[in-house]
Each structure stands twice: as C-alpha cells, then as structure tokens.
Design a protein around this nucleic acid. Sequence first.
DNA 1: CGAGGTTAAAACAATAAGTGAATTAACCTC
DNA 2: GAGGTTAATTCACTTATTGTTTTAACCTCG
Lengths: 415, 415
Amino acid sequence: MTGTNGVFMDDRQVSKVGSKALLKRMNRMRVLNTVRERAHIGRAEVADITGISRASVTYLVGELVKDGWLIEYDKGETTQAGGRPPILLQFNPDAMYAVVVMIGSERTTVAVGDGNAHMRYRETQPSVLGRSADEVVDVVVDMIGRALDTSGVDRQRVGGVAIGVPGLVDAHNSIVHYSARLPVMRDIDLGSMIATRVGLPVMVENETRLIGWGELKFGSGRGYSPLVCVSVTLGIGSCIILEDRMLSGSSYSAGQFGHMTIDEHGPLCECGNRGCWEALASSAAVLQRARGLDAAWAAEPTIPAILDAVKNGDRQAGKLMHETAVHLGIGLANIINIVNPSIIVLHGKMFEAGDAFLQTIRQTVSSRALKLPALNTRLIVSELGEQAGLAGGVTLVMRSVLESPLEQRANPFYV
Amino acid sequence: MTGTNGVFMDDRQVSKVGSKALLKRMNRMRVLNTVRERAHIGRAEVADITGISRASVTYLVGELVKDGWLIEYDKGETTQAGGRPPILLQFNPDAMYAVVVMIGSERTTVAVGDGNAHMRYRETQPSVLGRSADEVVDVVVDMIGRALDTSGVDRQRVGGVAIGVPGLVDAHNSIVHYSARLPVMRDIDLGSMIATRVGLPVMVENETRLIGWGELKFGSGRGYSPLVCVSVTLGIGSCIILEDRMLSGSSYSAGQFGHMTIDEHGPLCECGNRGCWEALASSAAVLQRARGLDAAWAAEPTIPAILDAVKNGDRQAGKLMHETAVHLGIGLANIINIVNPSIIVLHGKMFEAGDAFLQTIRQTVSSRALKLPALNTRLIVSELGEQAGLAGGVTLVMRSVLESPLEQRANPFYV
DNA sequence: CGAGGTTAAAACAATAAGTGAATTAACCTC
DNA sequence: GAGGTTAATTCACTTATTGTTTTAACCTCG
C-alpha cells in the first residue's frame, strides 16, 4: 500500500514525504511529550530540551493550550538570580479519554482511562473463550457501551477505543490474523466490526504490545530505548519498542521471543518445534511439569499453589521453580545478546515468585549473556502489573488522536 | 550526548528537531534514492512515486543535477499517447568516490569505489594480526595513501573513508571497543587516528554491518526491510537493517545472533556460554569437529577441503556438513521467529557448499520456524560475496556526505 | 522603594521549503 | 499544422521555523 513494508507501527510518519504538516506534527509531539515527561516546566526550558526555538515553542504551546492538551497551572517560582518566573505547564489528563478493551483468554476487561492512564471505570467479564467471533464483538460492544454510559466521562472527549488481543494482529488495519488462545479470531477485521457499532475510532493491537506501550509510557520502562517487554503467562509474549516505535516485522510477529529455540533437543512445543523458550519457561510449561510430580499441589496445579509450596520449603516445587528461573534466564540472556536493549521489563504473575527466583534469573543471565550488553541492560519487574495493558491502550489512542493530520480532525477539545 | 540512546546509526536525523533543513534533506534523499533505485526516470514519475509535488521535485532535481549527483542522460522516449517526453535522470556514479578498508583477521583490503560501488582500485595485504594498534594504523594509512595516489580518482571527489573491523564498534564516534579477532583493538579511536593522518572524514563500522549495508543497497537484498544479514566465517556475524537504519542497540551489539543459545546443553563457546549458535554452526565449529574425525582431510582441515570431500561422496564429511546445515537452520528459524524479516541474506564461503546443504537449511527452517513469518521471509545467498563489505563502505560514505548539513559542507562537486 | 539586572514569554519581521495553478516545452496523431 | 497530451518550469502563495526585539514579571541592592 505504502510501498515500503510496514515495519514500525507508525511508519506513516517516517516514510511519508516531508511536508510542513509533518514538520509541525513532529515538533508538536515533541513539545507535548517533553511537558508530559518532565512536568512543572516552562516554555523556555522546553525549548532548551527539545532544541526547538523559543519562538516556535511559544507558538506550539499556545496551540496546545488552546486545544486543551496542556494547562498553564501555575505562574510562580522564579529561577536563579531573579528574572521573570516561567509559566509552568502541565499535561492535561482530561484532554482526552480512551476506552481500552483487553480480550484475554482468562477474562475480558473494559476500562476508561484519562490521559495519565488513570482508570475512571472498569468492568471485568469472564473470558469469551468458546464464543464465535460475532458473539465476541457483541460482548465487547456491549461492554464498551456500558462503559461510555456509566463512566461519566464526556463522550465528546473520548478519543477512541484500543483493543488488546492475544495473537497475531495487523495493527495498521486493525485485523486479527490469528490467535492460538482464541481460535475463532482468524482474519477478523475486529476494528471495523466494532468501530461501526460504537461510532469511535478503534485500534487493535497484540496484548503484549499494549503491555509494552504501557510500560514504556507509564511504567518502570519510562523513556528507555530499546525496551523489551516480556510477559509470561500460559505462553510467553514479548515485544521490542525502539525510540517510540513498535518493531512490527514484515508480518506482525517481530519481537516475539516465545518460539525461540533455546534447546534444540528440548520438549515439543505447541508450535511443532522443539525446545522453544515458551515450552520450557512459560506458566503452561511449569504446570505441565508439575502434573508429573508426586505432591498434594501437583494434582491440579496452579502457579500460586506452586509458589506457596516453594514458600513452605517444598523441595520439588523449589527445584521446579529453580529450573524455570534458569530457563527464563537463558532466554533473557539471548534477548540481551540479540537486541542489546537498555531495559527488559518482566511481566506476569511468575515474577512475584520472590527474591530467590529473581536471583536465579539474574545469575543465569549474568553467567550466560555477553558481559557488555548485560551490564547495559536493566532487568526489572513490572510495577504496573495488570494495569500495563490498559495504560498501553491509552497510549495508542492518544497517539492516534495527536498524530492524525490536523486538518482531518475537527478538534474536539475546548473549541 | 544527544539525550536519547543512539539506537539507529542515523538517529541524529530522526531525533533531531524538525527544521526546514531536515525537511529538505529528507526530500532530497528521497528524490536521489528514487532515481538511484529506478533509473531511467523523469521528474514527473519521481514526483508520483515519492508523493512530493512536481514543483518541489523540479527544484530538488535541479539542485542535485547542479551538484553533480544526478545527470540528465537522455531526452528521449515519449510515453503513452504523445506528450512531451520526460528528461531521463540517472544517478551519477562519478559524483563521489569512497575509500573502503576492510581490516579482517585473514587479510587487509583497501579499495576505491564509485557511487555505484564499482571498484576502481584494490589492494590486499596480509592480515594485521599480531601487530599493535599503532602499527595497524600505519599499515592502513599507508594503504589509503597508496590508493589515493594510484587509483587515479580526483582526490577532491573522495567523500571519505569507511573502515570495517570485526568486533564491537561505536559507529557514531568511530571507536572500536572490542574485537575478539584483533585483541589490540580495545577502545581505540580508530576514526580520529586515521582521519588526522589522511585528511578525510573517516567512518568505522563493524565488518558484518558493512556487509549488510552492501547487500541492502547493491546486493540481493536491495530494498528489502527488515533485512537480516548473516555472515558465517570463523564466527557468525549478523546485523539487522530496518528502513534504512542499522539496528545498533544500547551498546552497539544489537542484531548479533552469533551468541544466541540454541542448545542450552551444547558445547562451550569462546564467550563462556554453552550452545551458542556460533559454537555449533560457524566455520570454526566445523573445523573443530573435523579435527576429531579420522580422515585424510581431517588432519589439517579447511572448509574448501571439507566441501571437496563432500563432493567426492565422503560419508563423514557429508554428515558433518549436514549437521552444520541443521544448526544453521535452527538459528535462522530463530531469526525468522524473532525478527520477522522480509529477507535474510546469507554470506560466507560455507554457503557455496552446494544445493544439498542449502536444501537441508531450508528444510530445517521450514520445519522449525513459525509458518507465517517463514513464508514471508526470503532466504537467499549473497551474490556480492567478498564485494559486499566494500559496497557497504561506499554506502556509508555516501550517506555521510549526503546527510551532512548542507551549510557545513562546502560542496566539492561541480561547483 | 526604585534603578538596574535577569529571565520568560510574546510579538514581529524575515527566511525558506513545499505546493497549486498557470505557463511553456516537446512530442504525438490525424 | 491544428489540437491533444504529458513533462518541466515559473510564479505566487502558504506556512513552519527562527532571530531579534519588545514586553512582562520577577529579583537584589543601595
């Protein structure tokens, strides 16, 4: 369509011809993001940080204030040796709201969040597993409607809907191509199906990628690049974000380390291959192996039950989790060697297994990864937890509103 | 220095503030590259392809012609139903020359190439292995001097020197941080050392990354993105290029798949880890294993000797190469799963082992990689061979000349 | 308390890149 | 050679950025 393959989520911008509109969008975003990241900041400092001239910053900030994205929240606090105090700027979280839907294999969640990813509303329903695609759409549309009606936010200010789905998603066209967990989602144009019924722009993205966005913009990965986010649940999902761009690949599966072989002779994986990371270190793998053990918690094992057993000093459980930590470490070492990220954010219940578990992971990483990249990679556990995906949805919606061509968008805020 | 980590080789551009100069550089490059890629093209078609207006294209092409980058090589050949024929444009390979140096562990090569990466001069010397850093600089400076003197190209038209080194290179600052093959190269500011003595801009880059650039711009990978280039020699080098940007990582080691674990219980690697791809599938690994065999060619094995043995039906050699192909395939499958590239270019003598060898690789890949990304990935053997690195050097020099701010550069061509 | 200093923000005029519309150039066919 | 067609150029216009100047708002010190 555009000629070059869509590799980044936002390659429209980069590969588009350089027009004055593009220039302005770039600088506008730059100013807005600078204020968002370092709040309590005046125009002059924004100019210094961004490198944009003071005159342009004044102009752009003026527009952003007029449109409601920024607020001049305080006049005060002079700097240094006297001089006029800056007019302090702040991102206005109420400029825009986003509806975020997470269609998981364990539950369905809909939330409404403001620009700071604070959720004003939330509803959780059982998983849609087993339903048809149309039924899934019905459920989601229903939940979105209820969210819009009862959350109390001004519908005019809702910038759009972001939907997270486990599986292969063409985020450009909002199409779900394939999902191992939700098999009915096969080449489904989820975006259009929902957009026509809720009357809002709809974006669809892979679940783990939403989590990655959340961690990058609101979580412990704030500002790092390249960022790798690894989410361990039944499978292992992951993504790579580079300078605010999601690495997408030629068919939407870049950054997925789950099916990386780390043991060529290892156990068979769902995908047909042997020794995938996911077959050795996911929750599913742990549960699978637990079932083969002889213990009370092993009859119908759950991750929390196993973690409990570890806490109570159960030898078998301890060994199981130790081995899992080693396998996680091997995969993480690979990520470090291959991607050389500045941060890896670890996501999922399993990382609440305690210090010993993390210790084993870290030891494995530092013994198996190359020294230099290992030293340069922060390995941290998500603080956002379940919130990450929702926050990521807010990010997507906000970007889409901000980056859509100015002309095309009747400015909905403070007109 | 720039605030954000240098992730792409050319992030100056992307992260820099949007100025009119940037805009012009972008469009200029776009026009130039369009003409380079689809030669025999008129201004109107360039405008259609790039999306830039006809007026701007006229202006930009005019400037590029004036500066000597493009030539109006023919007036003829009208299109369709009459009408003025376009003035056909062509990239002018003589607009700029580049000196390219490859400091390998087996030899040192210096070449002078034109804008089409045709080499006008070449000299090869034995490897600098064992020499001190200063001696290496002496050798290189000497060779560059001879190249400039005897190649016959106008020194005014030499845009710079590109140097390829096996190892960890900070291409931004032209510093070689570490090299397993040339251990004296440790935190050496090779760029400055050579630049001051030859009086030309000098760029330093990792050997495999130069090969990748060559394949992308002049080889079989032309225009593909994302492109992965894998070079199998004693070790395994590799790189990832995305939309004309080299993936660099937070400490210059992104895209290196050599030390990716594919067998956690595998043999010990030089790096201290177990089962690295490089420890299982590189030439060194093959030679190592060959030495353990009982055959005439196994006493002092070389890759050509082993390949010969295979051709002559030697069972042991056949098995050895088959297993190597499988290991190569496993690593390539990982690359496909992780990066989801649209092409992987295979580089190195080993890929001349014949159809059976490649067949085994392909079979392994298609049985072990995920179906969709595997279908979307072309797996091809380099046509450029030894030339690739040299061509890549030309690319780097040309980019640096074209992308340097217009004001700063006294235009050396056709003034 | 007011003059002089300092910094921030706004206003203004200048610059320059991209673009649409109009014009000119170069070819075709009938 | 008239009318049609497409390419390239020219020109007037728009607009984003910028350097400079001006105004605003604070400080300190005598």
